[in-house]
């Protein structure tokens, strides 16, 4: 295998270089278009030759993504992309491996793979397009749909309590957790940039509008921008049209929104403890009518890929692998 090479020996590419010859087949008006454009626009910034970039996806609308990126790619099976990407990343540390997934793919059928990739801190960047609905199968409720959601499979309303993807990722020991909105390209790009720079697993939830089966699900922040609680590391957490609202921690560690003057939390995405990030993740449409976007958590922890490479290196230094010696190890005897 080749040595890592992130020095961008090629001339700097443009977004166009990352477009494939495939016709993009999402529904007109789908939030995925904006995310695709943001990704293609961001890729040149990575300064990684495009042959070293791989997009791996599972099944769902979002999972078509690799077909539209002029990199290496695999459109795999439902929920398994984090597992496949783990094997690829661990065996090829020279690659930049991205997983594109959806709320059903990542949190329902693939929940197990997601949490384990995050806890291991495999060097993969996971983009979860959350539209709170099953789009490809035409409109059944998903594990992020709010309780009571009326869909084709829940005519009397969903009974399921939904996952909060940010809380889940933090609980799964993720070292990088962020949220973005499909249409806010500048903020999405900022989060992508931080995720790419992060060593280890990065988890980004992207609010993505499904205009066919769950239109306007995120209007409370997508359209009503005053409800976006922008998390900026080192900055006080204030939001609202004039910054008139703030977020602070109660004595029990939970987060609350307050109006007017007061002492907002100064955001520390690198906090060694996960609890402040978790507390902020509980601020949602349902609890406060607003929700944070940006980076909840960005901490350093040894990267699985590197740890494995270290073990291989150590073992090779201790004893060269000789096939003949391996086979003849243990008790042998000779017959003449």
């Amino acid at each position: 295998m080749s040595e890592p090479n992130g020095n961008g020996a090629q001339p700097k590419l443009t977004a166009k270089a990352y477009k494939t010859d495939q016709e993009v087949r999402w529904c007109p008006g789908c939030g995925d278009y904006a995310i695709l454009a943001a990704l293609q626009g961001f890729m040149p910034e990575l300064e990684i030759p495009k042959e070293r970039i791989v997009f791996v996806s599972g099944i769902g609308c979002a999972a078509r993504f690799p077909y539209y990126m002029e990199t290496y790619g695999m459109h795999s099976i439902h929920g398994r992309a984090p597992a496949i990407a783990t094997g690829l990343s661990v065996s090829r540390p020279d690659l930049s491996v991205w997983v594109v997934t959806g709320d059903g793919d990542a949190l329902s059928i693939g929940g197990n793979h997601l949490i384990h990739a995050l806890r291991r801190n495999v060097n993969i960047k996971i983009l979860l397009f959350n539209n709170e609905i099953y789009g490809l199968t035409k409109g059944q409720y998903s594990p992020t749909s709010p309780r009571g959601k009326v869909t084709k499979s829940t005519p009397m309303g969903s009974l399921d309590w939904p996952f909060n993807p940010i809380s889940l990722a933090i609980g799964a020991e993720a070292t990088f957790v962020a949220r973005a909105i499909d249409t806010d390209r500048a903020q999405l790009t900022e989060v992508l940039r931080a995720a790419a720079a992060h060593k280890g697993s990065a988890f980004i939830e992207i609010f993505q509008n499904c205009n066919i089966f769950n239109d306007n699900a995120f209007d409370f922040v997508r359209e009503e921008k005053e409800n976006r609680i922008h998390l900026q590391h080192g900055e006080p957490v204030r939001f609202g049209a004039e910054g008139e609202r703030g977020v602070r921690l109660r004595s029990d560690g939970s987060a609350e929104v307050f109006e007017g003057d007061g002492d907002p939390l100064a955001w520390d995405a690198h906090h060694p403890e996960a609890s402040p990030a978790f507390a902020l993740s509980r601020l949602t449409r349902d609890t406060v009518g607003a929700t944070p976007i940006g980076i909840f958590r960005d901490v350093e922890r040894p990267v699985y890929d590197e740890l494995m490479a270290d073990q291989l290196r150590t073992a090779s230094e201790q004893r060269e692998g000789k096939l003949g010696a391996l086979l003849a190890g243990g008790d042998t005897w000779t017959i003449s």
Binding site: M1, V56, M74, S76, R80, P82, A83, I84, A85, T86, G87, L88, S89, V90, S91, R92, L95, N112, H113, H116
Partner: peptide, 15 residues
């Protein structure tokens, strides 16, 4: 499932 998935991912990468 992850065991064989990771193996297939590694195969894609040339292992």
């Amino acid at each position: 499932i992850a065991a064989v998935g990771a193996a297939l991912g590694a195969s894609f990468g040339g292992s």
